[in-house]
Design a protein around this nucleic acid. Structure first.
Length: 905
RNA sequence: GGGCGGUUAGCUCAGCGGUAGAGCACAUCCUUGACAUGGAUGGGGUCACAGGUUCAAUCCCUGUACCGCCCACCA
């Protein structure tokens, strides 16, 4: 074995081995009758690169997959990537921009071609990065959410087409003209979820509108968006607002524009807000849109698709207005909305209509990708009426068909689905699934799975061949991801995989995409497969930097998982993430923690070297049940307990408990105690005990490899193989080796005996240190009137105790020697006679402190036992336990006091 | 405005009705035949605050104070 662990070399070698052996293939011949276990990966953006969130997400999935694979299941971890509409289009547009090009110059076909090129160029990156992390996906089944004709992913397109057409035919998908969230930068509609509310320090402009026919009166409205006043069609006041009641029914004159607009009464107007009178701009505000609808007001759109003022030739705007009188306003044409705002305010000020400017902080919607202010904008878009689908998705979770872990996320899920709005699925982008809708020149729409079918439909409608034009828009990228759990399995074909692996078992994801993705998969899965897409949704935390801030490029606090892997190894990173993945709290990651788990890997490596050097080689016929030596029986039992602990934690998705349980056992239980206690045997005389101990160490090492494999797959797979060098070679990779079943091997007698040894050594060390006995000094140990049991144990373990606690000799006496440190180990007194060496003052202090502690403890227990209610109401075991504790404490105290007294004589 | 979570050792966090735990940091000691990326030992906590339930509360309930997140139509 090499002297040090070289993660990079090992990772490359092991990855190749997994690939050669096709260890991660679903449906392997050796798993034919096995229970399936399926996870679909949250498909990362195809052009993305691995960040810490991915690292966590995929580490957890991999831990589950490896664990279940070892437990004998037929595991399918379905990998793939997402075409990620806006995100990807943005990346490619930015690249074009660097070369002073714009997508419109290229045209749609050429641009889409470029995106495909970029995908082919960079699309493998994230997959390779996932492999570096050790992700045990079935890479032969990799999918992409969007395919080209004839490619393997074409079937993903078929799935999208079928869903769109079916939903349309079922009346659940329709085209509608209403306000959408419009992103002026990308010039596309986006869904509610893609809008981020950002707090902005702005102003509230108070504008006075004259009242028609009443020169002495006016009404003042307050607005945060003065530029939209060009599209005002009314002023609304609350029906019960005394201040304005008499104005209702009259008309105001819109400043600058001169439009005559009604003053209406509407409950929407809040007397508390602003001036209590609110301008109504139905084309540019969601609320105003509703008010406009209620009062049958016209829609006056004053913005273009880029968010610029558009009034020249704008019929709705110019209706009943004298264009020539509007010269100053017409000059605003084509100005960007920000600039237009300034100019409108200036014009208002000039005209004397601006009453007041008040500082005002409010939430302003921004595009989560583009970062620009979103405009409510009137357009034709495709919507899915998700309400009925949401009902089923809600029901499935309420009935427990799908469970969230941690459970409290169910509330979040419920809240959103209960208040769900129609989902706008069309996007005015070029990169994505083009909407399968065709139009004839009369505006009839034909939704079909192909142009031929659309043509056929058109033919039957018109009785002749007509020219059709395809809808230019594409679908929201989440539309195709919503189908991921079944589209990846071959749907709409009835493939064997679909029957075998759907519904999937676990979905592992972050809470940030519960709405975007999880809820929509639930809706689509239930609707099209008639079954939930997964049994369990495990929601993990967000990875933040060590100070708790979100990692972001602009803050420069990003920890790049790949450089962490380069520096410390994938196993160290994985172990860190698993150990920190407690439910319900964000992970504050620091490189220091990774370093700690790198040290853990080193520790294991060195333990393996130790085993090798001491001839601890696997014995083919080794039977853990037949082990005779107490130490070995104990060690196997400890290992069995650790395996059980890890397995049950993983089954409950308590990754941190699992990882830390494994860590503690391997480092403390195995390295610090088992190996140390075994040293005297391993380095002592040859014989059956030594042979058995060697074999046991080798055996436990194998079990440790299995135990740690889900967390640290590379290191363990490597050690597993190295150990096979001696004797026969391993016939199977560790990844496919069964999870051990050792629960029945815990031996209470061995636990008691080794527990005594451990306690004795610990106590001696502690007492030596506290009483300033030089570390190098060999000192005697005296057992005081030992019981036969203790005497026998001392005989068996004398050598070990001498070695680990620096004891020169072990004697027996009726009473403790005069000058000595006295220890109480499991009820029996031992002493360290230290004539001339002992620091008596320190020993007295040690005893006094101990006595004090015991007294405090006893007082507490006495208070309890003296309470009649406690005795009456508390469960008997608890009372009994308290009594025992009290007795122990008082015994201990008596012994300590005795020792102290002796010391003072 | 609605909802959710957090407040436990110097730091980062587990735990969750009956003796407060880990890692890191800190202190002291140890070049012991796997490992100094190591070993041993130790110090350090009225479990945010105030009430309540209970024989018993860090844990359950109510409220308060900070901190964070999500949702909500920009007067």
């Amino acid at each position: 074995m090499d002297k040090t662990f070289d993660p990079a070399a090992v990772e490359a070698r092991i990855a190749a081995r997994w690939e050669e052996t096709q260890a991660f293939r679903a449906g392997r011949a050796d798993r034919q009758g096995a229970e399936p276990y399926t996870i679909v990966i949250p498909p990362p953006n195809v052009t993305g690169s691995l960040h810490m969130g991915h690292a966590l997400n995929n580490t957890l999935q991999d831990i589950l997959c490896r664990f279940e694979r070892m437990r004998g299941k037929d595991v399918l971890w379905q990998p793939g990537t997402d075409h990620a509409g806006i995100a990807t289009q943005m990346v490619v547009e930015r690249r074009l921009m660097e070369r002073q090009q714009h997508r419109r110059q290229l045209g749609r076909d050429e641009f889409v071609k470029r995106v495909w090129e970029w995908k082919d160029e960079s699309g493998g990156a994230i997959v390779n990065q996932l492999k570096r992390l050790g992700a045990s996906c079935d890479w032969s089944r990799e999918r992409f959410t969007m395919g080209v004709d004839g490619s393997a992913d074409d079937q993903m397109v078929q799935a999208v087409l079928k869903v769109f057409v079916d939903l349309y035919k079922q009346g659940l998908l329709y085209k509608d003209k209403r306000l959408v969230n419009w992103d002026p930068r990308f010039q596309t509609a986006i869904s509610d979820l893609e809008v981020q509310q950002v707090e902005v320090k702005g102003h509230l402009w108070h504008i006075r509108y004259a009242i028609e026919g009443e020169p002495d009166r006016s009404i003042t409205v307050a607005t945060t968006r003065p530029e939209t006043m060009l599209g005002d069609v009314a002023v609304a006041v609350h029906p019960e607002d005394e201040r304005y009641r008499d104005l209702v029914g009259k008309h105001a004159i819109l400043p600058l524009v001169g439009r005559r607009i009604p003053i209406v009464a509407d409950e929407y107007s809040d007397p508390e807000k602003g001036t209590g009178a609110v301008k109504i701009t139905p084309a540019h505000d969601f609320n105003d849109f509703e008010v406009g609808r209620r009062h049958k007001l016209p829609l006056v759109n004053v913005l273009g698709t880029e968010g610029q003022i558009q009034i020249e030739g704008n019929e709705a705007f110019l209706a009943d207005l004298d264009a020539t009188a509007l010269a100053p306003v017409m000059a605003l044409h084509n100005l960007d909305r920000a600039e237009a705002r300034k100019r409108v305010v200036a014009l208002l000020e000039e005209s004397g209509a601006l009453v007041e400017i008040e500082p005002h902080t409010h939430m302003v919607p921004h595009g989560d990708r583009s970062g620009v202010v979103i405009e409510p904008y009137l357009t034709d878009q495709w919507y899915v009426n998700v309400k009925p689908l949401a009902e089923r998705a809600l029901g499935a979770v309420r009935e427990g068909k799908t469970k969230f872990v941690p459970e409290n996320w169910e509330k979040t899920y419920f809240q959103w689905l209960e208040n769900i709005e129609p989902w706008c699925v069309s996007r005015q982008l070029w990169w994505g699934h083009q909407i399968p809708a065709w139009y004839d020149d009369q505006g009839n729409v034909f939704v079909a799975g192909s142009e031929e079918e659309a043509k056929a439909e058109a033919r039957s409608k018109h009785g002749k061949e007509v020219a059709l034009r395809r809808d230019e828009d594409v679908l929201d990228t989440w539309f195709s991801s919503a189908l991921w759990p079944f589209s990846t399995l071959g749907w709409p074909e009835k493939t064997p995989e679909l029957g075998r692996y759907y519904p999937t078992n676990t979905l592992v994801t972050g809470f940030d995409i519960i709405f975007f993705w999880v809820a929509r998969m639930m809706m689509m899965g239930l609707h099209f497969m008639d079954e939930v897409p997964f049994d369990t949704v495990y929601i993990h935390a967000l990875v933040r930097d060590e100070k708790g801030a979100k990692m972001s490029k602009s803050k420069g606090n990003v920890i790049d998982p790949l450089s962490v892997i380069d520096q410390y190894g994938a196993d160290a990173l994985r172990m860190t993430l698993a150990a920190m993945a407690a439910q319900g709290r964000d992970i504050k990651l620091s490189v220091q923690r990774v370093e700690g788990y790198r040290n853990f890997a080193t520790k294991i490596w060195n333990a393996a070297r130790f085993a090798e050097m001491n001839g601890c080689r696997r014995v083919a016929a080794f039977d853990p049940h037949a082990v005779k030596e107490t130490l070995n029986r104990w060690a196997i039992g400890e290992c069995a307990k650790a395996l059980e602990e890890v397995a049950s934690a993983l089954q409950a998705y308590r990754f941190n408990d699992a990882a830390l349980g494994a860590y503690r056992f391997v480092w403390n239980g195995f390295c610090d105690w088992t190996l140390e206690l075994a040293k005297p045997v391993l380095q002592g005389a040859d014989g059956p005990a030594k042979d058995e101990t060697r074999a046991t160490v080798a055996f436990i090492f194998d079990e440790i490899c299995k135990l740690l494999h889900p967390f640290m797959p590379f290191l363990t797979e490597e050690l597993w193989a190295i150990k096979g060098e001696e004797g026969e070679a391993r016939t199977q990779v560790l990844a496919l080796t069964p999870w051990p079943q050792l629960a029945e091997l815990v031996d209470p007698a061995a636990e008691a005996e080794i527990g005594w040894v451990v306690d004795l050594i610990t106590e001696i060390r502690s007492a030596r240190s506290e009483t300033n006995v030089p570390a190098g000094a060999q000192i005697p140990l005296v057992l005081v009137a030992p019981s036969a049991d203790v005497k026998a144990r001392a005989e068996r373990w004398g050598g070990t105790v001498k070695r680990l606690a620096r004891i020169s000799e072990i004697g027996i006496a009726e009473t403790p020697p005069r000058s000595s440190i006295q220890l109480l180990i499991r009820g029996e007194v031992s002493a360290l006679p230290l004539e001339g060496v002992i620091d008596l003052a320190a020993e007295r202090a040690r005893l006094a402190k101990e006595i004090q502690k015991l007294e405090a403890d006893m007082a507490k227990i006495d208070a309890k036992l003296g309470n009649a209610d406690f005795l009456k109401r508390a469960p008997e075991e608890v009372v009994e336990e308290q009594r025992e504790r009290r007795e122990e404490a008082s015994e201990r105290k008596a012994k300590m006091e005795e020792a102290l007294k002796r010391l003072q004589d």
